[in-house]
């Protein structure tokens, strides 16, 4: 009996193979999601190859003088410096490229950590139920009733520092959604036969979670994680804008806007590009996440 069911588990995988192929086919039909995907690929490549794309500039060095402006600080765009120079006389284009590195990295890493922690708590909570479930869910609810941004501000002023500090600060607040999602998913998977069968043939909870529950609750997690990237990029940008995130001289899209309001009148072009970069990137992640959701959830695909 149990063995037969186990064979069915084998069929499941071949079914899930065609499932993923179908998902991909549906995603391919989702034009905006595909445009976003390609855009993001280009963006990531630009961040990776920031060096060669910088026209020989680097984001840290102060330019001594430019021929088309009296002073290098806040100089408008000109040859070799397509976006001009910032308030300290550094090349804005290369800062934008390198800033993209930081912003994207923070977005991806925080989202990954959030998804991993969320998966962990969600699986445990859903699988074991009872008091474990109650404690984890209470904790999740507690985290959800915190005023996130004020606390992030406090936190990042308490533990000042590096890229990893900011990743830590953002990640703390980015796992709750996934935990709830996964818990719900596990609760419904637990009712299904293959979980029961696996338990019947004496598989350990760890293996059941790893082999059966984790892969089967992946779909909504992927969507949530994709959407979370854009949220995390905005958090990073906001904190850096407030002067609490990525610190000078390291560039990030957020801290490039740090002084934007003060030179709004003299050098407005400096505030266009980092903002536009953040906007189109988060937009692309949101569209991609939405497309993924439609592709993974055929109920809504009509």
């Amino acid at each position: 009996m149990a063995n037969e069911d186990y064979v069915e588990g084998g069929i499941e995988t071949s079914e899930s193979y065609s499932y993923w192929r179908k998902v991909f086919q549906r995603l391919k039909k989702h034009k905006i999601a595909m445009v976003s995907l390609w855009f993001l690929v280009v963006l990531i490549l630009m961040a990776v190859f920031a060096g060669p794309l910088s026209f020989g500039n680097n984001p840290y060095s102060y330019i001594k003088s430019v021929p088309w402006a009296p002073r290098p600080e806040l100089a408008p765009p000109g040859p070799g410096h397509p976006l001009g120079l910032d308030n300290m006389g550094r090349d804005a284009w290369s800062r934008l490229l390198y800033g993209g590195r930081v912003s994207l990295a923070v977005g991806f890493i925080c989202s990954f950590i959030g998804a991993a922690v969320g998966l962990f708590f969600g699986l445990i909570s859903g699988y074991f139920g009872g008091i474990t479930d109650m404690l984890i869910m209470r904790f999740t609810d507690f985290m959800l009733s915190l005023p996130v941004l004020p606390l992030m501000v406090v936190l990042s002023s308490v533990i000042k520092g590096s890229l990893w500090t900011i990743i830590f600060v953002i990640s703390i607040f980015s796992w709750m959604g996934v935990a709830r999602l996964v818990r719900g998913e596990v609760l419904s998977l637990k009712e299904q036969e293959f979980t029961e069968a696996a338990r019947a043939i004496g598989e350990t909870p760890g293996r059941i979670m790893w082999i059966h529950l984790l892969p089967n609750s992946m779909a909504p997690v992927i969507v949530a994680a994709t959407l979370a990237i854009s949220g995390n990029i905005i958090y990073e940008a906001t904190l850096s804008f407030l002067g609490l995130g990525i610190r000078q001289p390291t560039p990030s899209w957020g801290n490039m806007l740090n002084g934007a309001q003060t030179f709004m009148l003299t050098a407005p072009w400096l505030m266009w590009w980092p903002g536009i970069a953040i906007l189109v990137t988060t937009l692309a992640f949101n569209f991609l996440g939405d497309g993924l959701r439609d592709a993974l959830d055929p109920r809504l695909y009509r």
Binding site: I234, A237, T238, Q261, M271, L279, F285, F287
Partner: peptide, 14 residues
């Protein structure tokens, strides 16, 4: 999507 993706502070500045 625009509203969801717009960084609040930058929108304000704009």
């Amino acid at each position: 999507f625009f509203g969801m993706s717009m960084p609040t502070f930058w929108f304000g500045i704009m």
